[in-house]
């Protein structure tokens, strides 16, 4: 290859790299700048928040905002509610998602195709449309301010069914057949063969579900009025509206505390998500 052509290719690579990094910086800024502002503000004293020019560092350093959060609202009650709601909603969603996907992909029964289309159709309907009828139904059942009132209407799983079904269908079918011939029943097949092969997708699905449920705002807000059942996301609103002028320091501190559990979970699970497990199953 001539030196000219080589440098042309290198030049191309360099331009590509520049654009790549520029895009990365842009994405990072969109995510990181608000996050940075939240964290900084959470450590600022009240009279240092509304100032011009803006202060980029929290001086004086005011960790009191954090203790403020826990005293001004029943923070731990909200936190407990969030954990309960997320745990059960995500749990139900994951179990139902995996089981329904398994049935729709690997078990044979009449009407399977039609059922899948119906489930897909459910995915097309925005949440906001069903909210009024759901509210009427749940209120009628007397489930306002109860956990089941929050959890059950949220536990529909069209997305999980769709995602996991496609994952199961992408598995090498010879492995499934081998397991069937080896005498594995439906549950053993799912548990010992299908699930281990689908681990990365399952982790991704679980993570998305948990984050979604943790951040769920509108439905719990409609369903619960106080710390008996309301999750953190609703609790933060209470914090905001307590004074005439919102004191953003404690609100931001509360926000940071709310983000933390999800962030930790994400850091723990992300390696599992990336790890591929299908290697060596069949000759590629």
């Amino acid at each position: 290859m001539s030196g000219q052509a080589e440098s042309a290719i290198q030049g191309q690579g360099r331009v590509g790299k520049v654009f790549g990094y520029a895009a990365m910086v842009a994405v990072l800024a969109v995510i990181a700048v608000p996050l940075f502002w939240i964290v900084v503000t959470s450590f600022k004293a009240h009279d240092h928040i509304y100032v011009r020019p803006a202060e980029y560092l929290p001086i004086p350093f005011t960790p009191e905002n954090y203790s403020d959060v826990t005293t001004r609202i029943p923070f731990f009650a909200y936190f407990r509610n969030s954990v309960i709601i997320t745990f059960f909603t995500a749990g139900i969603k994951i179990v139902l998602g995996v089981l329904s996907a398994y049935a729709l992909s690997l078990l044979r029964f009449p009407g399977r195709g039609i059922l899948f289309v119906v489930i897909l159709a459910a995915l097309m309907v925005p949440n906001q449309i069903t909210i009024i009828s759901n509210f009427a139904l749940v209120a009628q059942l007397g489930w306002k301010n109860t956990f089941q009132g929050i959890i059950i209407p949220l536990a529909g799983v069209a997305f999980g069914t769709f995602l996991m079904r496609n994952q199961f269908l992408s598995l090498p079918h010879e492995i499934i057949e081998a397991a069937r011939m080896d005498g594995a029943g439906p549950f053993k097949l799912l548990w010992r063969v299908v699930m281990p092969l689908s681990w990365p997708t399952l982790v991704a699905f679980s993570l998305i579900t948990i984050v979604n449920e943790w951040n769920e705002y509108l439905w719990p807000f409609l369903m619960s009025d106080d710390e008996r059942t309301a999750p953190l996301q609703v609790g933060l609103t209470m914090l905001q509206n307590n004074d005439g002028v919102t004191n953003w320091g404690p609100v931001m501190a509360g926000t940071v505390l709310t983000i933390l559990p999800v962030l930790i979970l994400f850091l723990v699970l992300q390696r599992q998500m990336i790890k591929g497990l299908t290697s060596g199953a069949v000759k590629s």
């Binding site: 090498p172 492995i175 010992r192 281990p196 299908t278 290697s279 199953a281 069949v282 000759k283």
Partner: peptide
């Protein structure tokens, strides 16, 4: 043909 071993 593909052996279909359980990779896990």
């Amino acid at each position: 043909q593909s052996y279909a071993l359980y990779p896990n």
